[in-house]
């Protein structure tokens, strides 16, 4: 504690003055006599304006206006200078890093050829690396005009987080479960405005490697805006950075684009969500076999369900099969992990 505050403490108002003020019961804008020592004694919020101002006790506080979560305004991130900065970071930092960590193999890029933007990209979700990976892999004309629907409760719960993710990824806040009108409206407006949208219909990363049921958000937006949904399947990203894990490992991944799913007249969000899920499931099949096999399985309705067997946890895990052999396992288990562990 510094001396200034000490001195202020020693000069704190005498009891009589306090009592007097209390008895007077003066409030609001009525006049108050200054204490003789008032000048010398006040230290208060000495750090303003370096620090945020404190609120005067004499002024009623207005109800807080929500500024975070779905109320976070991301408009600033789509102004030209910010877009430019994001493009520079995306091309020079995010992309190389994603390439090195996830070593993506791209399949089915030709599905995008000739498609008019804007598009809605729907992918399965296993890892934080998914978003940078998708952004890195999108063709250039799409990549720099894409926003990412991100969980309002996770990415937008703190101001700094909201700022960082909005800047880096072009994130927009969206509820995980029931999408409310405001965020749906915002996303629809953006699509109408020509922005592509990346969305993870599962509403979160997989806890165990198997997919979760697709929710209706992507389908709803597609129906509402009339734009197609491009299914994306990501394989192996779980091994780079899994949910709940804090170490990043290099690992091979596969990213597969599917043919766009167009909303049809009699689709509702639920039925279309199912079609999207099926499309992603077919891509999953394709990732582990080949396109022809996958198409056949899909035609038979036998694509391996994304969500895995309905069984106890170890069996679900078992059914995923072994993790791919990784380079770092050969080089030594700790060598390429990050954060690096100290070796004894």
């Amino acid at each position: 504690m510094n001396s200034r505050r000490d001195s202020s403490r020693s000069l704190l108002p005498t009891r009589e003055v306090r009592a007097d003020a209390a008895l007077g019961g003066r409030v609001g804008s009525t006049l108050r006599r200054l204490r003789p020592s008032a000048l010398a004694s006040r230290a208060g919020s000495a750090h303003f304006p370096l620090a945020a101002p404190t609120w005067p006790g004499t002024v009623p506080r207005p109800a807080p206006t929500p500024e975070l979560g779905v109320h976070y305004d991301t408009a600033w991130s789509r102004r030209y200078p910010v877009r430019l900065a994001r493009a520079i970071v995306l091309d020079n930092v995010t992309r190389p890093v994603a390439k090195v960590l996830a070593q993506p193999r791209l399949r089915g890029e030709d599905a995008l050829v000739g498609l008019d933007t804007p598009l809605i990209f729907a992918a399965n979700h296993a890892s934080h690396i998914d978003t940078p990976l998708i952004l890195s892999s999108l063709p250039q004309h799409i990549r720099h005009k894409t926003v990412v629907a991100a969980a309002a409760d996770y990415f937008f719960d703190r101001r700094w987080k909201a700022d960082v993710f909005t800047f880096l990824l072009g994130a927009i806040p969206m509820e995980r479960t029931k999408v409310n009108r405001k965020s749906a409206q915002a996303a629809a407006d953006l699509i109408a405005d020509g922005w592509n949208l990346v969305i993870f219909p599962e509403g979160g990363r997989t806890p165990d490697g198997w997919g979760q049921p697709f929710r209706g958000g992507a389908a709803y937006l597609s129906i509402r805006t009339g734009r197609p949904v491009v299914p994306i399947h990501l394989d192996g990203t779980r091994h780079v950075l899994a949910k709940g894990s804090s170490t990043i490992r290099r690992s091979r991944t596969t990213l597969t684009y599917g043919l766009p799913v167009w909303p049809s007249k009699d689709d509702d969000a639920r039925s279309m969500a199912a079609r999207i899920e099926a499309a992603v499931a077919a891509l999953a099949e394709e990732a582990t076999t080949d396109w022809w096999t996958a198409r056949k399985a899909a035609a038979r309705g036998e694509s391996a369900a994304l969500q895995g067997p309905d069984a106890v946890a170890w069996r679900r895990s078992w059914a995923l099969g072994p993790a791919p052999e990784r380079q770092e396992d050969i080089a030594g288990p700790e060598e390429n992990s990050w954060p690096r562990k100290t070796r004894r």
Binding site: R32, F48, P49, T54, P56, G57, T58, V59
Partner: peptide, 11 residues
């Protein structure tokens, strides 16, 4: 608005 300065009031 007429503010009454208290110890929380910024400069």
């Amino acid at each position: 608005f007429v503010l009454e300065v208290d110890r929380s009031t910024p400069p």
